[in-house]
Amino acid sequence: MATRRIQRTEESRRLLVTAAAELFAEKGYRQTSFIDIADKAGISRGSIPWHFGNKLGLLEAVVDDQLQAVLTGFAPPVGEPAGDSLDQVMRFIRLPVTRLFITLLAEAVEVGSPIRAHYARLHAALRQGVQARIPTEALPPGTTPRALAVLLVGAVIGIHAQWRVAPEAVDLEAVHATIRALLPASLGQT
């Protein structure tokens, strides 16, 4: 009996996080209400504070869930080589979760935004994930993995925003080829 209740609780939480992620990506954090999330998840809106405390707690769960999915995507399968880190960064642009991150950015940059700290944590984790895949020996003199990670995460955010706004104007394959041409050849392989 207790196991079944735990399973229902976990399923309810998962449905709420999934619904909130989709709605935050579509409408933004502030424009999404408990009612919207509960309706989309098919769960009572009273479940949201029970599981997460408040809307900010739900946002934290969404960011943690989505960030874990992204970072897992950066990691190679156990026992396999890491592969091409630039390809992985470019694949990130096409992920549906990237839309969520871009939508949240618009709200996170506002002074006093309740999601600013969460977004800063998200950016830090993305930079750390990219930086971990940059071989120091491949960098040109005077550059650091940390600075390149900032550059690549910023480029991905900007490229993704342009692609979402005007997909017909942004050729992602050409952008990928251009970034590859500009970076040292050994940098894409880790």
Results as ranks from 00 to 15, higher is better:
160 H>N: 05
51 H>I: 08
85 S>F: 09
55 K>S: 03
54 N>G: 05
165 V>R: 15
3 T>G: 10
19 A>D: 00
79 G>M: 09
108 A>Y: 01
180 R>K: 10
55 K>W: 05
53 G>Y: 03
135 P>I: 03
104 L>D: 10
163 W>M: 04
127 R>W: 12
86 L>E: 00
96 P>H: 06
39 D>Q: 13
47 S>D: 01
137 E>I: 09
188 G>F: 07
171 D>S: 08
49 P>R: 14
138 A>D: 07
136 T>I: 10
19 A>V: 00
38 A>C: 01
51 H>D: 00
95 L>V: 07
88 Q>E: 11
45 R>W: 04
138 A>P: 12
92 F>Q: 11
165 V>C: 12
81 P>Y: 04
153 V>S: 01
123 H>D: 15
26 E>L: 08
21 A>E: 07
25 A>D: 08
167 P>V: 07
51 H>A: 10
19 A>E: 00
121 R>M: 13
173 E>W: 11
72 T>A: 07
190 T>K: 04
22 E>Y: 03
84 D>M: 05
36 D>N: 06
149 A>F: 06
165 V>K: 15
109 V>I: 14
58 L>Y: 01
21 A>S: 12
94 R>K: 14
57 G>N: 04
122 L>Q: 06
108 A>G: 01
139 L>R: 04
182 L>P: 04
58 L>D: 00
121 R>V: 13
37 I>C: 01
98 T>V: 13
84 D>A: 03
13 R>N: 02
98 T>S: 12
74 F>Q: 02
176 H>L: 09
11 E>A: 14
161 A>N: 10
74 F>C: 04
83 G>I: 15
119 Y>E: 01
90 M>P: 00
30 R>S: 05
154 G>R: 10
88 Q>W: 06
28 G>T: 09
87 D>E: 12
70 V>E: 07
8 R>Q: 14
67 L>R: 12
188 G>K: 13
37 I>R: 05
63 V>Y: 03
25 A>Q: 02
149 A>E: 15
8 R>K: 11
29 Y>W: 04
46 G>T: 00
54 N>H: 05
12 S>K: 08
120 A>R: 03
170 V>G: 08
